[in-house]
Design a protein around this nucleic acid. Sequence first.
DNA 1: TAGTGCTGGTCTCTTTTTGAGACTCATATA
DNA 2: TATATGAGTCTCAAAAAGAGACCAGCACTA
Lengths: 136, 136
Amino acid sequence: MDSKIVGLRSKLEIYKAGSGGGNIADCPVRDVIQGISNKWSSLLMMALAEKPYRFGELRRLVPDISQRMLTQTLHDLQRDGYVHREVFPTKPPSVEYSLTDLGRSMFGPLHQLLQWAELNHGAVRDARNAFDATES
Amino acid sequence: MDSKIVGLRSKLEIYKAGSGGGNIADCPVRDVIQGISNKWSSLLMMALAEKPYRFGELRRLVPDISQRMLTQTLHDLQRDGYVHREVFPTKPPSVEYSLTDLGRSMFGPLHQLLQWAELNHGAVRDARNAFDATES
DNA sequence: TAGTGCTGGTCTCTTTTTGAGACTCATATA
DNA sequence: TATATGAGTCTCAAAAAGAGACCAGCACTA
């Protein structure tokens, strides 16, 4: 590993880190990122960072997610260790989803990104409008 | 961890911010996040954060992206104002992609998330293994 | 007692998105 | 003449996502 001065170190090495031969295609960091870089993950993480929610509550909170994708995204987040799923023996049984410690840990940096988006969505919208105006 | 001061305010409000009636479905923050929460955006942002690259260089750098998705993702990143595209009149003409100021600004928080992934991919892998062991 | 609603899903079908790979075009080199 | 190059586009197949019906068990209502 040609790790030089930290600041000059290729940022791509983060993606390559641990992948032995340096093949960027099968890299653990990329694997982790792709688990949370999909349409619904960050939205559900944000909801659950506020407080635990039940399945139906999440569905009402995010009206445009399909039941199928809600099930699947929660399942994936649970599998990656970000979300805890607990069944309560009510009638009918209810299921509560909450963040794990790992999930809260990951939400830290994710939250920074969300705040950036909150501060800069105007700039992004302007860039889109400018781009769309010149391309046509 | 991410609690006290900011935590009293509903984190969901970031997603709702600016959407008037509070409908989470058409929210500018969500719109921005979904522009960068896809399979290839963060990977290309990371590459371009290192230095500008040409189209073919990016393709070789990320061997498992299709030419079609590379074109499209770069186009989307350019439209959102993160990436600058410059054509040089060589023969055949070459095209260089680089981050804009907005892109570099966004890469700050994104980089934090990537570093989290670098530090914690072991924990995520362990969680996956544990989950896969118990579900079967 | 039959009907209705609640829960958290699954199943199937259709539409959208992505991937694989051939093709373009003008030039340069073998 | 044949082939390579750079930056894409085009077409077709495969995968993923969306829409919406359906399921089970129990409680409440008519």
